[in-house]
Write a protein that binds this DNA or RNA. Sequence first.
RNA 1: GCGAGAGUGGUGAAAUUGGCAGACACGCUAGACUUAGGAUCUAGUGCCUUAUGGCGUAAGGGUUCAAGUCCCUUCUCUCGCACCA
Length: 837
Amino acid sequence: MSKYPFNQIEPKWQAFWEDDKTFKVTEDPAYPKDRRAYVLDMFPYPSGAGLHVGHPEGYTATDIYCRYLTMNGYNVLHPMGFDSFGLPAENYAIKTGTHPKITTEKNINRFREQIKSLGFCYDWDREISTHSKEYYRWTQWIFLQLYNRGLAYEAETPINWCPDCKTGLANEEVKDGRCERCGSQVSRKNLRQWILKITAYADRLLEDLEDLEWTDAIKAMQKNWIGRSEGADVIFTIENSSETIKVYTTRPDTLFGATYMVLSPEHPLVETITTDEQRSAVEAYVHAAAMKSDLERTDLAKEKTGVFSGTYAINPVNGAKIPVWIADYVLISYGSGAIMAVPAHDTRDWEFAKEFDLPIIEVLEGGDVQKEAFTEDGIHVNSGFLDGMGKTQAIEAMISWLEERSMGEKTVNYKLRDWIFSRQRYWGEPIPLVHCDTCGTVPVPEDQLPLELPEVSSFTPTGTGESPLAGIDTWVNTTCPVCGKPAKRETNTMPQWAGSCWYYLRFLDPKNTETLASQEAIDYWMPVNLYVGGAEHAVLHLLYARFWHKVLYDLGVVKHKEPFQRLINQGMITSFAYQRSDKSLVPTDEVEETGPDTFIEKSTGEPLERVIAKMSKSLKNVINPDEIIRDFGSDAMRLYEMFMGPLQVSKPWSTSGIAGVHRLLDRIWRLAEQPRSTAEAPKELQKVLHKTIKKVTHDTGLLEFNTAIAQMMICVNEFYKAKEIPLSIWEPFVQLIAPYAPHLAEELWEQLGHAPSIAKSTWPTWDESLTVDEEITVIFQVNGKVRAKVSVALGTGKEELEKMALEHRRIIEWTEGKTIRRVISVPDKLVNIVVSG
RNA sequence: GCGAGAGUGGUGAAAUUGGCAGACACGCUAGACUUAGGAUCUAGUGCCUUAUGGCGUAAGGGUUCAAGUCCCUUCUCUCGCACCA
């Protein structure tokens, strides 16, 4: 057993920090703006499963960074809270009859305890939970501001419906046609909805990404999700009708090649323009399309289907008569739900034209349009006034031509849809609106907020599209705040994303009863300097929160356009799994290691390959942080998660790896048992210390914790070679490890006779002259191959090095009888001699 | 299909501006020591080779005195989007 008594040290210092309120932070005006830092973790949903090894990864990273900043003289805001409304607690309530508030608060207590057991420097006085009424009062208040600005509207619209969760979902919550949460196939259902007009902010959400310090990957995901495209609306007239069809196209230059049109089956004109001969076929097709789920519609992507409406439209540019088809490859939700089809230059239209034998007319040269669609740039042909032009020029020319004749105009379209904001469930913020027969929809007056979630006897969703709240007559029936007549409350609740849209603001001033956060607190801390969390929120939470923030900006509540200046996504912690030759996976407890990196399945003896997989219950490869902390201590846990590799990449957990960092802590502990002298330290020890201070300072600032830890290991290895470590070396070293292994560092700091806390001590500085070696190794190469290594004084001149190389015995051997063509001499690095013959 | 990222020992990984590939750690091997522990300490450990030496950063090509790093082609994997006109 190791000597290092982490199980005594760690609880001791956690209790100290708690009683001492060591990490309480205030808006101290003595710190100038550039000495304040707001470092935020994505707060967790307090699930029944407790903390996962993935949570401490990001939390440890920010904790180290915050402690480092504090020691460097920053005032650091580092809060933690809980995203505590949501479906899992409610589903559990349905199963067991336990109120979600009870299970949620129990889970929060467990989470808080687990988080505290890792020794993080959160200011717990600022803890918030989104389900508390003091918090959701302001979530509701923000909703009312959105409503008052016309950014929340009610509509009867087909939405994504999850039959298992019995609620509507936002587009962002649907993955591959399935519910992101439970995996059930999502169907479409017509429901009365509250919708937020996020599309009104599409351009700003796109433009303001520019100045953010986020990874290009996340920016790209948001850009793709917003999906801005420039093109033109074109108006087509219909033969023998006064109706017109408006289409959106990004390629107005190909208008001469439009040989047919397509309406989405849901398009309002379908009924009007269908001819009597085609009516039964069209109705059957429209009905069949409505029956298909989104998944089926996309799954059948290879086979294009459609039906002719019987009607013809007139191509505005050349008067050509072209058939109008109905097909479900055109989506009602994008553009105008109708397209002009240019099979020669669009892959989808080409496939459809081949399927139904429609004409393909080439209007850009460069491909063979009978064989496949040509979608690249080329010279226009068969295109009247566009002939001879390239794509860009032709697009402009066509738009002008259309605009002059009022047949179309330049337009911008987005893939982003408005945000379906209501959920037909219980455990969420009630939407603070009242429906009055006389006054219509009326907001609950702000001074009556929070509109509290009532007690219910059954949490079971009705499944009819009404929330369980609809069944509570005493709550639903109210009076209209305007006219005082009987009225009914809105019974939908808000989605889980609502609470997390603005929690970073509440942390600034969590107890304020007058406003969501005081102006002073907002001005003191905002924006968030560093935000760390999982990449799974790349579009959902991060897009929604940015949207709300911009609304608050327009209201004058915040003064920065963006909430999160810098964003880092930590990589996932994966686990090893074992794979049979047929690629099926074997649970870890049925695997035996028979040699280095060779594994067999116990029951069959079949050889297995070790692969990397997500942790999952079924593979029995889930790591429980509580057990790791029990066996190795939280300092070891923190250190290991940071030592595994770069923060941003995903990496597999290996329990033997944690033994390595535990050994480091044990070695440090044993060094501490040495007597400490005040004698001047030998030069070699000074040098290793100063190199370590430099490297750890640099790497910690860049969140490159793995290499900082490696340097501390090198330093400890050097310490073991020395007879003794004088105080002047030991003390700064203890400070260097403080952000990484805070419990051990506090204990050692106390041993050194200092009053706690080391977290408030000043970060050590290094002497640059002690970080460079006077003697360095220079390599001599012949034709780029290393042939000799010599030790020379730092800064030895180019010519001198060259001379040394040419006179070196080994170099002479390699160059003898050959012609020296060239000599490259780089001081402090190398000499390369190029020879031939 | 489109977009983004990645591919380095048995394993996790290092490698400012192109300049000794594999730091540090796990694992393994040998030795020492012992309070037989989840010890500890020391040394070794990319591959081939008897040393000299040769080969090595997914594959192939290029630029360069010099390439893990820059350029081109290809392959594989991960993530995101996916009939968005």
